[in-house]
């Protein structure tokens, strides 16, 4: 059971060998950006593995590389060097189209600013996640409606994002992330734009779904209250990961 440890445990074993229960394996993962004539090391030789079904919180200062790490985990960008595997698939050199398929099937995203399509209704926003999977229309509508019901928004299906509160919008976004039944849920500051009460609501929903479906949950946050709920807490500063 790689990586899963008691929250109270001191040093975590960072195993880079993939096993059946390993969701992510990162080896010497480095990501640099060019900013003018300066090179920024957003991630430096990160070795990390995350087990399937694990609930991981990533904390750290702004500019520490949290979002960059989440992009790597989500297959949204490629590392400058090193490798990253999702399950058995090494994705750092995978063609774009294949990577898009993996994102469509296995990875759900939740964003700080919800990122809903402003012109589409809640129902239609959820359906966009099923579009690349080629799910037929009737089934798509049915599954999206069920996902909205699961986050308690059955009665808001026909509303536009602008007609919903922040918490409701984030719930639509969670429904969109979960409707395809992914292996992993990646959330970048999912409660950053919400008040405390709504924050707890959203966290209840995320944790409930994780328990129910056994999916891997990685949450980037600088809210310690959010991080404390995770089984495993990572600290990311200046491109370097340390366990807490």
């Amino acid at each position: 059971m790689t990586g899963i440890a008691s929250p109270a445990g001191g040093v975590h074993r960072i195993d880079t060998r993939p096993t059946e229960d390993t969701m992510y394996t990162l080896t010497k993962l480095t990501k640099t950006y060019r900013q003018g004539d300066r090179t920024v090391h957003a991630l430096k030789n990160v070795d990390l593995s995350i087990g399937a079904g694990e609930h991981v919180a990533i904390q750290g200062p702004t500019g520490g590389g949290k979002t960059t790490l989440l992009q790597m985990l989500g297959g949204l960008d490629r590392p400058t060097s090193g490798t990253i595997s999702i399950g058995e698939d090494e994705i750092s050199k995978m063609p774009d189209a294949k990577l898009a398929k993996i994102r469509a099937k296995e990875i759900g995203f939740v964003f700080q600013n919800f990122n809903l399509i402003p012109t589409l209704t809640a129902q239609e926003n959820v359906e966009t996640a099923l579009e690349p999977l080629g799910v037929p229309g009737a089934q798509r509508a049915e599954r999206a409606a069920a996902a909205l019901a699961a986050v308690g928004l059955a009665d808001r299906a026909a509303h536009l994002p602008s007609e919903l509160s922040g918490g409701q919008q984030q719930r639509v976004a969670i429904a969109r992330a979960l409707v395809k039944e992914p292996e992993v849920l990646l959330a970048d500051e999912p409660t950053g734009a919400l008040d405390e009460e709504t924050r707890d609501e959203i966290l209840e929903i995320l944790e409930g779904i994780r328990r129910e479906r056994g999916l891997t949950l990685v949450v980037v946050t600088h809210d310690s209250a959010v991080a404390r709920r995770a089984e495993r807490r990572l600290h990311l500063a200046a491109g370097t990961v340390t366990e807490r």
């Binding site: 949204l76 469509a104 600013n113 990122n115 690349p132």
Partner: peptide, 16 residues
């Protein structure tokens, strides 16, 4: 930009 980035992030193909 964010809208299309999001669609790509959730798996929409470039062609789509």
């Amino acid at each position: 930009t964010r809208e299309f980035g999001t669609l790509k992030a959730i798996g929409w193909s470039n062609r789509r």
